[in-house]
């Protein structure tokens, strides 16, 4: 194609983003209907971040995720059946029902069970990179975090260690402009979060996190640097959460004008327009969406028909 990507690759970006979106929409419905237990933090609007970054990784690389992990898990190729089952707390879930939405993960797929303590995953990803380096393995750790997490001490301590030890880690900051209900402008004075990297002499880059190709290309460079032993990078991905922070949050703190603009700029719409300009047809895109929806329905059926854990399973899995 004239953009330098194969059609397959472009459509794979698209498929993954749509898979995340449709997964989240289905989960939202199940949750609001009262069919799904627990609490959820959803990823609608931020799909290009996960898909762009994770597509730059190889087998053997590892990510850490946050309280908002569904998108990261899907982008890393986790089985959506086991994800859906986990959300229902079933035995067949990726964490056997022990984790739930906020702790989703599958180490086989390179996803550490998500860490729901804001900032809690940053030293962990740094340690994974430290391990890769000690063992002289050409592997890379990626640490997903939100804008809010960069105000935790763990962020600053971790970046400094990654810098002095030149660790193979990429810090992917999803700046959706809010930490829960609080706008970033109320809690930091830097205009770009990427500026924070310079305090640790780490390259810091800000890109449009709703442009999957931009995200992918930036991540590829950072991952390659890390893999070559040239050290950490911080990538700030500018994006927007087009759903509530959690559960039934109506997000009234987001001004209507801002929300409207965000919807016009959301990553899937944006990428669809690009694909159409690349002579991919609307029908092809529709077909992908339909296939994805079927896949999700299968996952829901699988999850609902899966057995619950036994009550006593509570007592397993604590120690090796």
């Amino acid at each position: 194609m004239k953009c330098g990507y194969s059609k397959e690759q472009l459509l794979e970006f698209y498929r993954k983003m749509v898979l995340i979106r449709e997964f989240e929409e289905r989960v939202k419905f199940l949750f609001l209907e009262g069919i799904m237990p627990g609490t959820i933090h959803q990823y609608q609007g931020e799909e290009a971040c996960a898909v762009g970054v994770c597509s730059a990784l190889q087998r053997g690389d590892i990510i850490t995720s946050t309280h908002r992990p569904h998108g990261h898990c899907i982008a890393m190729g986790m089985d959506i059946k086991s994800m859906m089952a986990e959300l229902f707390g079933k035995q067949t879930g990726c964490c056997k029902g022990k984790g739930g939405s906020m702790h989703m993960g599958d180490i086989e797929k390179g996803v550490v069970p998500a860490i729901a303590i804001v900032g809690g995953g940053i030293p962990v990803a740094t340690g994974i990179a430290f391990g890769f380096k000690m063992k002289k393995q050409p592997r890379v750790a990626v640490c997903f975090m939100g804008d809010g997490a960069t105000n935790e001490g763990t962020f600053h301590e971790s970046l400094n260690m990654a810098s002095i030890w030149n660790l193979p880690v990429v810090y992917a900051v999803e700046n959706n402009f809010y930490g829960a209900s609080t706008h970033v402008s109320l809690v930091m004075k830097v205009e770009k979060i990427s500026e924070r990297a310079c305090a640790y002499k780490i390259p810091g880059i800000t890109v449009d996190g709703n442009d999957v190709i931009k995200v992918y290309e930036t991540a590829c460079e950072a991952v390659e640097r890390a893999r070559k032993g040239e050290g950490p990078t911080l990538i700030e991905l500018l994006t927007y959460r087009i759903t509530g922070h959690s559960r039934r949050d109506p997000a009234l703190y987001q001004p209507p004008e801002e929300k409207k603009k965000a919807l016009e700029n959301e990553p899937i719409k944006k990428f669809s327009e690009f694909l159409i300009s690349m002579d991919i047809t609307q029908e092809e895109l529709e077909k992908i969406r339909e296939t994805v929806k079927e896949e999700i329905e299968d996952a829901v059926k699988y999850a609902m028909n899966s057995p619950d854990p036994l009550p006593q399973d509570t007592l397993n899995d604590l120690f090796v």
Partner: peptide, 16 residues
């Protein structure tokens, strides 16, 4: 509660 972290699944949580 038993000497474990809190599990997520409603079935296990009820036991916990």
């Amino acid at each position: 509660a038993p000497d474990t972290p809190a599990p997520f699944s409603p079935v296990m949580e009820k036991f916990y």
